[in-house]
Computed example of a mutant assay.
Amino acid sequence: MPKSLADGRIKVVALSTIPADPFAPTVTELTAGVDISCRILSSDYTLGPTDSDKIAEKELCKEGNANALGPSNYTAAVTPFRYFDDTTKQADPIEDAVFELLKEKGTTVYLYERQSAKKSTEPFAAGDEVEGYEVTTDNPQKPSDMGGYIKRRVPMEVQTAWLNGKVKAAGGA
């Protein structure tokens, strides 16, 4: 089996409502979300587990440290590009949808990520491996380097995660 480069093969959608089965969202539920894959900066995208908390609970007879794994931890942040109308020079309500969805502190969003040999532009299909995250947005931040495209980094706090999920068919079977 060949390996696959990750470049251009991460698909992320943002949902405003939680799927009926968060571990197994349907194609229909994922397709109803906003595909943010081509609207966010790749270089600082973070979404996923980090090291769990450690609990020092070793037995008296053990030599050295022997930690137990405690609560799971996660990290999440995206940097949406901003999109403006050519005529009015105001935010375009359709093209700027990702920033509009994430711009208010305290907004709850459900992010689903597929990372596979499929290109990020390919639609979800039954059987695709996905990870889901319930996140709460923080205030969008201006980048320290104001060069390049206009964009804002949106830090997020992961509330719940559904790892190692699989997409169900559109009908849910």
Rank of each mutant, 00 (worst) to 15 (best):
K166W: 04
K166Q: 01
L163K: 08
S116N: 05
T160I: 03
S144H: 06
D145R: 07
Q115G: 11
Y149F: 09
V158E: 00
T121F: 15
V167Q: 02
Q141M: 09
Q159I: 03
W162C: 01
R114L: 05
G132Y: 13
R152S: 01
K168W: 10
V154C: 08
A169F: 13
T121H: 14
T136N: 05
E134N: 02
I150W: 09
G127K: 11
E129V: 13
E134W: 01
P143K: 07
T137V: 12
K168R: 10
Y133R: 04
A126C: 13
S116C: 09
T136I: 14
P155Y: 07
A126K: 14
T137M: 12
Y110H: 09
N164G: 00
S144Y: 09
G148H: 01
I150L: 08
S144A: 03
G148W: 02
M156A: 06
K118E: 12
V154A: 06
R153N: 00
P143T: 08
D128W: 15
S144I: 09
E131D: 14
S116Y: 11
A125C: 11
G171I: 12
P155A: 03
E131T: 15
S144W: 07
R114T: 04
E134T: 07
V135G: 05
Y112A: 04
A117C: 03
V135W: 13
E122V: 15
S116G: 06
E113I: 15
S144K: 08
A169V: 11
E134A: 12
A117D: 05
E157T: 15
D138R: 14
T160G: 00
Y133C: 06
Y112C: 03
E131C: 15
K166L: 05
W162G: 00
G127A: 13
W162L: 03
M156E: 03
T136M: 08
K142V: 03
E129M: 08
A126H: 12
D145F: 10
E157K: 12
G172V: 14
T160F: 05
S120H: 13
A117F: 14
T137C: 02
Q141S: 04
A170Q: 04
R152K: 04
A161G: 04
N139D: 05
G147H: 05
Y110S: 00
P123S: 12
E157W: 12
R152T: 02
T137W: 15
P123Y: 14
Y133W: 12
Y110L: 03
R152L: 06
K119E: 10
G148Y: 01
K151V: 06
E131P: 08
K168S: 08
A117M: 09
S120N: 11
R153T: 02
T160L: 01
Q115N: 11
G127E: 07
Y133P: 01
A173K: 12
K118H: 13
R152A: 04
R114A: 06
L111H: 07
G132K: 09
R114C: 07
R153Q: 00
Q141K: 08
P155L: 05
K119D: 09
M156W: 11
N139K: 08
I150D: 04
G147A: 05
D138K: 15
G172E: 09
D128L: 12
A169G: 07
P123I: 14
K119M: 12
G127T: 14
T160A: 02
A170F: 10
R152Q: 01
V154L: 06
P143C: 08
Y133M: 07
G165D: 02
R153I: 00
A117Y: 13
T136V: 13
P123V: 14
D145L: 08
P140M: 10
